[in-house]
Design a protein around this nucleic acid. Sequence first.
RNA 1: GAGGUUGUAGCUCAGUCGGUUAGAGCGCUAGAUUGUGGUUCUAGAGGUCGCGGGUUCGAGACCCGUCUCCCUCCCCA
Length: 455
Amino acid sequence: MSKPSLARGTRDFGPEQMAKRNFIFDTIRRSFQRYGFLPLETPAFENLSVLMGKYGDEGDQLLFKILNSGDFSGKLVAQDWQEGYKPLTTKISEKGLRYDLTVPFARYVAMNRGTLPMPFKRYQIQPVWRADRPQRGRYREFYQCDADVVGTDSLLCEAEIVLLLHDILPALGIIDFTVKINNRKILTGIADIIGAHGMEGPLCVAIDKLDKIGKDKVVEELLERGFSGESIGQLDPIFNLSNEDEPFTELSDWLAESPVALKGIQELEEVWAMVKVLGLEHAKIEFDVTLARGLSYYTGAIFEVKANNVQIGSISGGGRYDNLTGTFGVPGISGVGISLGVDRIYDVMEELNLFKDAQSTGTQVMVSNFDEAAFTFGLSILPKLRQAGINSELYPDQVKLKKQLDYADRKNIPFVILIGSEELNSGLLTLKNMKSGEQQKLKIEDIISLLTAAS
RNA sequence: GAGGUUGUAGCUCAGUCGGUUAGAGCGCUAGAUUGUGGUUCUAGAGGUCGCGGGUUCGAGACCCGUCUCCCUCCCCA
């Protein structure tokens, strides 16, 4: 017999944790629905052909692959072993656990394009899996809450994502946050302008770290990634770009020669304007040229949300992707979406002590079980309580009252109904308030109306 | 995938230089109290010292391997 253990990077969620998590899920779901998103669920695992190549090399490596069932090695020959693990993987595994919710959604859209009302807005709340090394705020199984719109390139979607975030996070009690926004087109333009056409990928990865490691280290990394000193020299505006009111004019001057970049800047300006018209006066949005994000499929706006004054990575991320369905043979469907990480939001809320008001869905009243006659009577009042919408339970065993009350105490049950021979004779039941210790004798109807009023 | 670190009772942790039967607090169980929880008192149960190997007369302690926690990098929610 072996000691039980959890797989690395996974967790159980007990009742108290689930109460908090459900509060988060419910809050997010309500907001998603209010913005017109419809629910979708997709399978936990997909064919690897769907998942591979969508997240970059790094992502492919972090995919959990599922070993083929049965005799997966039967057809292997000696040469397969010598070719290394990558070619071997394709021979012994053809399915993998989903890595995010966006790619499965794109697959769903591609497969159902004829039947979906376009533009199609869906939300999806499901776990995803990544085979990376666990750390603070990083797990191998975690929940994402995604909302995406496909089938329109209207910047209203981007603006609505900003609004959505400003609804959800305060509703959770997270008030101090920043929605960082950038546009992939600007990054593409920068790569062009500095004479490093097509290298925005590595450029992004490096400058994304600016606020973390500083200019010198970024320059160092750019050199390592094959940028010339001349190109890097032209990046100065990035390092000096002021975060003041009009960063866009400054940027437009610098990137005037790049039509792509100008398009990106114009898109962002439009988003800013629309957010304002939508009535968000003090938007916590911030343009950040250094925001890049590694996922390779983004083509327009890029979002990232940071909870301030908490040592946890971003709690949300997203962006626009123009051609995700294209890889499934359906080009021309642009999409944009946002993904919230429940597990990180949970950690943030825990750290900021924001769970005090989380409602309990636990038992409201417990009926004691004193003897056979009282038990039978308890059976008869239980359905009455439940039909009145009161969460209730009858203690199943005839054990000492001390033990029953102790159980109620540990489950934080606020009321206990005591039934013994005395109560059976008089028809008046003893209702005990577990917090104050007070007891009163009442008819069951009065208990029900009292408990209904209390909740 | 690279580097560092941790692991002793359900939990938090002591455990001296390698030396008798591995301890504490909290929690748990039972009783004090056969109709009353939280407080108190008493008693009790609970250990493959992460796992595997090695050194030694002797290993919780030292060495090697491995797994795991946490942290840094990479990357990300």
